[in-house]
Design a protein around this nucleic acid. Structure first.
Length: 274
DNA sequence: CATGCGTGGAT
DNA sequence: TATCCAAGCAT
């Protein structure tokens, strides 16, 4: 869950998730719609699918070293090192965005191999604590913008601090060209049910339909903005009345929506008010 | 190795 | 059409 996601955003999800899936076996046995419903809002949904695959693999025997952890779907070098060091006291530097930033500044080198440097600096006697300490340093002191160098315990060894280049590091990769799109979403109700279709923007989730053959578009209910990676959407929300529904459309009781993987866009649309 | 993947919060 | 970026990973 923590991959590319802030700790504060994860915590409530983590708690609910572990209540519902207290063991690897429980997670492995879940149906994908419920899994996605539990994950909805966290983003990067392949993480959820990978975690479930991994749960099945670890249910019998949990891998206890870096190489075996790395084999698990969804576990890359960072996660394998984090678990190996924190849970099993093995000397692997966990290099996340925080550590890359700290190392780039410490060396004043935007092209530095952060993994190599972190492995050299690692306290192999307590690698878990070292990893968490460096990540925490990055999260609380060596901030992306305007780092708190005055409060930094390693400022006197920091080459960027000496050179005054801390605000220019680490180098950021250029982002893809933004795309701006406008879409219409339809709220179509009948007999206490809501019409949904398989999501076209986020796979595995149900979403509100866009205008289709056989629908009459009614009053505008509101609008909202939502961004998915580099695509910036403006969604216009209208009422609709369907004389016939799309082949892949499905009616759902309103009170069952909580158990469905419902897209963030659909959730936002159902909240809009003019 | 560059790219795509989701979302929400901070600034 | 704000912009950045988060305890990354797979392809």
């Amino acid at each position: 869950m923590l991959q590319q996601t802030r700790v504060a955003a994860v915590i409530p999800y983590y708690q609910r998730f572990l209540e519902r899936f207290p063991t690897p076996a429980a997670l492995a046995a879940a149906e994908e719609p419920e899994l996605l419903a539990m994950w909805a809002g966290l983003g990067y949904y392949s993480r959820a699918r990978n975690l479930q695959k991994a749960a099945a693999l670890v249910a019998e025997t949990f891998p206890s070293d870096y190489a075996a952890l790395l084999e698990l779907p969804g576990v890359g070098t960072y996660t394998a090192a984090a678990v190996a060091s924190i849970a099993f006291d093995q000397p692997h530097a966990a290099v996340d965005g925080n550590v890359r930033r700290v190392v780039a500044r410490l060396t004043n080198d935007g092209l530095v191999d952060a993994g190599r440097v972190a492995d050299e600096l690692l306290d192999s006697k307590q690698p878990g604590r070292w990893n968490q300490a460096v990540m925490e340093l990055g999260a609380t002191v060596c901030l992306p913008r305007e780092p708190l160098c005055e409060a930094c315990p390693v400022a006197k060894w920091c080459a960027a601090r000496l050179a005054g280049t801390q605000n220019e590091l680490p180098l950021k990769r250029k982002k893809p060209e933004a795309e701006y799109l406008e879409k219409t979403l339809l709220i179509i109700r009948s007999k206490g049910r809501l019409l949904l279709v398989p999501g076209v923007r986020v796979a595995g989730f149900w979403d509100l339909p866009e205008p289709f053959k056989g629908v009459r578009v009614g009053a505008k209910l509101g609008e909202f903005k939502h961004t998915i990676t580099h695509r910036h959407y403006r969604f216009l929300v209208f009422e609709g009345v369907a004389s016939r529904i799309p082949a892949d459309g499905c009616w759902f009781e309103e009170e069952d929506l909580g158990k469905l993987p419902l897209s963030t866009t659909a959730k936002k649309a159902l909240r809009v008010r003019v």
